[in-house]
C-alpha cells in the first residue's frame, strides 16, 4: 500500500509539472491534427518520433554517465517535431531530425543548460540536410471561424499551452513582445494565425533556453520577431524556416543572459 501510495503521489507530482502538462496539451493538439488529417501514417510518425526521442535520450545520457532520466523533455520535443515536420519525408529523415534534437539537448550545453531549443534545432538542422523537412502541418489548419464549432474547438485546443507558458511558467513577456512586434511588422490578422500562435506559445518561451530576467525576455521576443522577417535567404531553392531560424539565433545570442 505504501509503495502504491508512493507511486500515485509521484505520478500526481509528475502531472503537475509544467513540462508534463505541456506534453498533455501537445497530445491534444496532435489529436485535433489527426482528426483533421486522419491517417495511420500520422499515428505511426507520432509513435516513431517519440520512440526515437526517448531511446536516443537514454543513449546520450548513458554516454554522459547520467543516470537520472525524465521522459517529459524528450517527449515534448518529439511532440513538437511531429506537429511541425513534413509528414511526407522518408523515415530515415524523421529519425535524423529526432536524434539531432535530442543530441542538441544533451551536448550543446553551457553551464548545465542547453543553448538551443531542442525541437527547433533538430528541425532546422534537418531542413539544412533534407530540403522541405519543415511544414507546420499540425499547426496551420486551426483557422478561427466563428460559424464553425469544430474550428473553434480546435483553435481553443491550440491555445491550451497558454495555461502553461503564460500562467504557470510566466513567460508572457517573451510571448507578448514577440507577438506585438511581429504584428507591427506584418498585419493584425496574423494574431489568429495558428502557426504563429503555436510557435509563440510552445516553442518560443521554452524556459531552459530563454532568458529568465524580465528585460532580456522582452528583448529576446522582439529580436526573434524582427529577425524572422530578415532570415529568409533569397537564394533559389534554399529558404530557411524564418521562425525557427530566428529562434535558434536568439537562443545563441541571449544564452548569456539567462
Amino acid at each position: 500500500m505504501l509503495i502504491l501510495a508512493y507511486h500515485i503521489n509521484y505520478m500526481r507530482r509528475l502531472v503537475e509539472t509544467p513540462k508534463t502538462q505541456l506534453g498533455i496539451a501537445l497530445f491534444l493538439i496532435f489529436i485535433t491534427a489527426f482528426i483533421n488529417n486522419p491517417s495511420l501514417k500520422i499515428i505511426a510518425i507520432y509513435l516513431f518520433l517519440h520512440f526515437v526521442a526517448v531511446a536516443s535520450d537514454l543513449f546520450f545520457l548513458k554516454l554522459r554517465n547520467i543516470f537520472f532520466f525524465s521522459l517529459s523533455a524528450s517527449l515534448v520535443s518529439a511532440s513538437i517535431i511531429t506537429l511541425v515536420v513534413n509528414p511526407n519525408i522518408p523515415w530515415h529523415q524523421l529519425f535524423v531530425i529526432a536524434v539531432l534534437a535530442i543530441a542538441s539537448k544533451n551536448f550543446l550545453r553551457v553551464s548545465g543548460r542547453g543553448i538551443f531549443n531542442p525541437a527547433g534545432f533538430g528541425l532546422l538542422a534537418g531542413s539544412l540536410i533534407f530540403p522541405d523537412a519543415i511544414s507546420w502541418w499540425g499547426t496551420s489548419f486551426q483557422q478561427f471561424r466563428v460559424q464553425n464549432l469544430e474550428s473553434i474547438i480546435f483553435f481553443l485546443i491550440l491555445l491550451s499551452p497558454v495555461l502553461i507558458s503564460i500562467i504557470r511558467m510566466k513567460r508572457y513577456r517573451i510571448i507578448l513582445s514577440f507577438l506585438i512586434m511581429y504584428i507591427l511588422l506584418s498585419s493584425i490578422s496574423n494574431l489568429l494565425d495558428p502557426t504563429l500562435l503555436f510557435f509563440s506559445l510552445v516553442m518560443l518561451p521554452e524556459p531552459m533556453t530563454t532568458p529568465n530576467r524580465h528585460l532580456p525576455q522582452i528583448l529576446f521576443g522582439i529580436f526573434v520577431a524582427v529577425f524572422s522577417f530578415i532570415t529568409f535567404l533569397p537564394i533559389q531553392n534554399f529558404q530557411l524556416d524564418p521562425l525557427i531560424t530566428s529562434l535558434l539565433i536568439g537562443n545563441l545570442i541571449f544564452f548569456k543572459f539567462r
Partner: peptide, 28 residues
Amino acid sequence: ILIGAGALIAVIAAVVLITGKGGYQTPI
C-alpha cells in the same frame, strides 16, 4: 553593452522594416 547593442539592432531593423526602406516588400 550587449543588451544595448541587441536592442539597438532590433529597433533599427524594426524601423527599416516598418518604413519599408530596407528593400523588402511589406510582409503578408
